[in-house]
Amino acid sequence: MSIAARDWLSAARLRTLPLALSSIIMGGFLAEKFGKFSPTIFGFACLTTILLQVLSNFANDYGDTQNGADLVDRVGPTRAVQSGKISPKQMLGGIVFIGVCSLLSGILLIYISFGGFTQLFWTFLAIGLLCILAAYTYTAGKKPYGYMGLGDISVFIFFGIVGVVCSYFLYSQTFNSQTIWPAISCGALATGVLNINNLRDIDSDRTAGKITIPVRIGRRNTIIYHWALLLVSIGSTLFFINNIGNVKPYYFVSFPLIILNGVQISKSSNPDPYLKTLAITSLAHVSLLGFSII
């Protein structure tokens, strides 16, 4: 593998993909539970989600360097643009390329799901365009919303509500209120991953004027906030289980792993190692919950 290829893979941040796929996998499990599952829709949903996540990671690498959040002394993985391995112009080209690929994949996904250019097709196309816009403007552009502390809300919506509820809708073309609870669970864990990232970068973000939740409320309150997110995920799962009935107990195995993350974040001065573990825990949680209901 060439050095350039390794740099692009590093910038894609493959370790974030399990988290991105968690909500899509949950939507697939729910579709299977209610007899609506389609392997084709699932495949294109996963592909579109992966492309959107890579787009977001490229834009984050590009935007944070342009806006001064990626300082030399930042904690965490070295960024491609900041280190000079990929130039800003090259990264912008990569953003455009991945953005077009995600749009084409998303169009195929909703065309197959709705059987043509129906009203639902155009509605979901608008949602898809909003996803692409949100992925880019999180840290890139003139007024990135991640610098105003709105990233948590965006992650909860797109990695939770949109990821689970909308992906289930692609299979069934109906809204099922039961899908809200696993969507909340997925969204809370995804927001927890972002919270760890922002807690790690609290000092460099403050210097760069990136006003994330941890910068606003401080380290101590951020840990309390993190516990709240983890407990919301567990609580919404229990509510879902209680309402759906006929469930195997596999889901319970993920609860100690979620609690362990809270303990680790509470005790560690550098939470970076636990970002990856919570992302994997989120995928494990979804898998265990999914196998519990089908």
Rank of each mutant, 00 (worst) to 15 (best):
L231D: 10
Y251C: 07
S254Y: 07
P249Q: 01
F255H: 06
N246M: 13
N242D: 15
L230M: 15
F255V: 10
S254K: 01
I234E: 04
L229W: 12
Y225V: 02
N242C: 01
F255I: 15
T237H: 09
Y251M: 06
K248N: 08
Y225K: 04
T237C: 11
L238V: 13
K248W: 13
I244C: 05
Y250T: 08
S254I: 07
L231F: 15
F255A: 06
I244K: 06
A228H: 10
W227C: 01
I244L: 09
L229Q: 09
L231Q: 00
W227N: 05
F240R: 03
F252R: 01
S254L: 01
I234T: 10
L231E: 07
F252A: 13
Y225G: 02
H226D: 07
I234N: 11
S254Q: 09
I224M: 02
I234R: 06
P249K: 07
T237L: 14
L230H: 02
V253F: 15
I244S: 05
P249C: 03
F252W: 12
S236F: 15
V232P: 01
F255E: 03
F239Y: 14
F239W: 13
N243L: 10
F239E: 05
Y250L: 14
N246D: 15
H226Q: 15
L230K: 03
Y251S: 00
G245K: 09
L231N: 10
V247F: 00
H226K: 04
N242L: 10
F255Q: 09
I241S: 09
F240G: 07
A228R: 02
I234Q: 09
N242G: 13
L238Q: 08
N246V: 10
S254R: 04
L238I: 15
Y250K: 08
L230V: 10
G245L: 13
W227Q: 06
F252M: 13
A228S: 14
K248T: 13
P249Y: 10
Y225I: 02
F240K: 03
S236Q: 14
L238D: 01
K248S: 13
Y250Q: 12
L230W: 06
P249A: 11
I224H: 00
F239S: 05
V232M: 15
G235V: 06
F239N: 04
Y225C: 05
H226G: 04
H226T: 02
S233T: 14
N243H: 10
N242Y: 05
Y251G: 01
S254G: 12
I224K: 02
A228G: 02
L238R: 11
F240T: 02
Y251N: 06
Y251K: 08
P249W: 06
Y251H: 00
S236H: 08
Y250C: 03
L230Y: 11
G245R: 08
S254V: 04
L229M: 11
G235Q: 11
S236G: 10
V232A: 15
I224C: 00
S233V: 14
A228K: 07
V253C: 05
F255M: 09
S254E: 08
F252P: 05
N246H: 14
K248M: 11
I244R: 01
S254W: 03
N246C: 11
P249M: 12
T237N: 11
L238E: 01
L229P: 00
I241W: 02
L230Q: 06
A228Y: 00
I244T: 12
N243Y: 03
F252G: 07
